[in-house]
Computed example of a mutant assay.
Amino acid sequence: MEIQYKQEVNLDWEEFRATLIASTLGERRPIDDLERIKLMVKNANLIVTARHTGKLVGVARSVTDWIFCAYLSDLFVEEEYQKNGIGKELIRQTKLLIPQAKLILLSAPAAIDYYPRIGMTHHPKAFMLDEVDELQ
């Protein structure tokens, strides 16, 4: 199976959403909030895609300063294409575009064991804040 990887600056949000739904990550993203999905695609400044005969089958969506760090906020592959190395290659292609930047991601629960297997390092010092009212 030949997969084409490339950076896409104008990825169609509907294509992004359809592939997100066809992956397991769709369960943890606001797929019914179309405006939010549109802005997720529009505001990301590094998107690498995987396509099979033109069909979008995987996405690595990041926000980066291009030199120090990049937050890989979405990494997903359509379920029928999973376990073929596409996710790993999306990470590799992303990193090749930002060689000096540290790549950071938060793992989905189902993928927590995947990242160490492909050579990524677990970082126990990450923190999150969902709501401003949670600050004390």
Rank of each mutant, 00 (worst) to 15 (best):
E2Y: 04
E8T: 07
L11F: 01
E15S: 08
A18L: 04
A18C: 02
A22H: 00
A22D: 00
E27W: 04
R29N: 04
R29S: 04
P30Y: 03
D33H: 07
E35P: 14
E35N: 12
E35W: 11
R36M: 15
K38V: 14
K38R: 12
M40P: 02
V41W: 13
V41G: 15
A44D: 06
N45R: 15
N45P: 09
L46P: 12
L46G: 13
L46C: 09
V48E: 10
T49H: 09
A50Y: 11
K55F: 02
L56S: 00
V57M: 03
V57W: 03
A60D: 05
I67H: 02
F68M: 11
C69V: 15
A70V: 00
L72I: 00
L72S: 10
S73T: 12
S73F: 06
L75R: 13
F76K: 04
E80R: 07
Q82G: 05
N84L: 07
N84K: 11
I86P: 08
G87N: 01
K88I: 01
L90S: 03
Q93D: 06
T94D: 13
K95M: 09
L96Y: 05
L97S: 08
L97H: 02
L97E: 10
Q100L: 12
Q100N: 13
A101N: 00
K102W: 15
L103T: 13
L103A: 14
L105Q: 13
S107F: 10
S107K: 00
P109E: 13
A110N: 11
Y114L: 05
Y114Q: 04
Y115K: 02
I118S: 01
I118E: 03
I118Q: 02
G119P: 10
M120W: 04
K125Y: 12
F127L: 05
L129K: 01
D130R: 05
D130T: 14
E131H: 14
D133W: 11
E134M: 11
Q136L: 13
